[in-house]
């Protein structure tokens, strides 16, 4: 059991350190590179790493290292904001539906059913294709496709909490329904959300990059990891690794940071419960 906790802590610490480093690199990007993210070096399209360009340049002659760093701002920002929106909206809906039940619950759950009749990525793809790309649209799309899962999660939690003795105790104490909801149900129903949300940030980043990879995300000159990977597809077949391997690696490490954090939180919650 000691071991479990120690492993959980090391996961949480590693994940947090990874994320902190990525955030720092994104914020300090201007200090870490001399090139702007959309600055074109007309002399050197597809330049190999080394020399003036640490990680070489892409097809358009833009500096890969610089773009990778600046892209972190966009990818992280969109993912975190979108997930935050999904958590707030989904949890509130789930809370209300789960606690009061009745027709509101029925309607909400049918809507969630329809949403969940599709794989998340397919749904994001369809909505993004129909609404068009752009950063704000992407935030909305990713929030929209993730919110139903939170609604369902919180609703299930609320429904089981509603039956627990301490809620009955609050009722016998004469607490009004809103008081019970706010003081007892809400804080306890968010426990699983705390674990899922970091994992979800990782998935959101993958979704965003996937959309951009297919050309449905951030418009062309914008620095975004998925779009960069997409641009380098042809280079890979030609054996030029530097245009698409580095952005993917950054994406992987960043998502891994969230995964480690989420897994660690989960593990700790399990160890404490035991």
């Amino acid at each position: 059991m000691t071991k479990d906790l120690r492993f959980a802590s090391s996961l949480i610490v590693t994940g947090s350190v990874i994320l902190a480093v990525v955030v720092l690199a994104a914020l300090l990007a201007p200090l870490l590179t001399g090139w702007g993210p959309e600055e074109i070096d007309p002399a050197a399209p597809l330049a190999a790493p080394g020399g003036a360009h640490l990680l070489g340049t892409d097809l358009n002659g833009m500096d890969v290292w610089s773009r990778v760093l600046y892209a972190a701002r966009l990818d992280l920002g969109v993912a975190v904001v979108a997930v935050a929106l999904a958590v707030v909206a989904g949890s509130l809906l789930g809370l209300v539906a789960g606690y009061w039940g009745g027709w509101a619950d029925d309607v909400l759950m049918r809507v969630v059913d329809v949403f969940q009749a599709f794989p998340t990525f397919i749904l994001a793809l369809a909505v993004a294709a129909l609404f068009g790309g752009g950063t704000l649209n992407l935030v909305a799309v990713i929030a929209l496709v993730n919110a139903p899962a939170y609604a369902r999660l919180v609703r299930a939690e609320v429904r089981s909490i509603r039956e627990l003795p301490y809620i009955e105790a609050a009722r016998t104490s004469g607490a009004p329904p809103w008081g019970i909801l706010w003081r007892h149900v809400l804080p306890n129903s968010l426990t699983p959300v705390r674990v899922i949300a970091p994992l979800n940030c990782g998935w959101a980043m993958l979704t965003l990059a996937g959309l951009s990879f297919l050309g449905l995300g951030v418009p062309v000159p914008g620095a975004e990891w998925g779009a960069m990977i997409s641009l380098g597809t042809a280079d890979v077949v030609a054996g030029r690794w530097w245009t698409s391997v580095p952005p993917g690696l950054f994406l992987l490490v960043c998502v891994l940071g969230f995964s480690l954090l989420g897994e660690g939180l989960q593990e700790r919650a399990d160890a404490v419960r035991r």
């Binding site: 003795p165 609050a170 003081r183």
Partner: peptide
Amino acid sequence: AQLVFQDPIGSLSPRRTVADAIAEPLRAA
């Protein structure tokens, strides 16, 4: 009328302090 429960720990809200739990009927009143 007040109830004393079979499961003593389960009948207390996990994220509230003892002071909070005991004060609940008073707050409601």
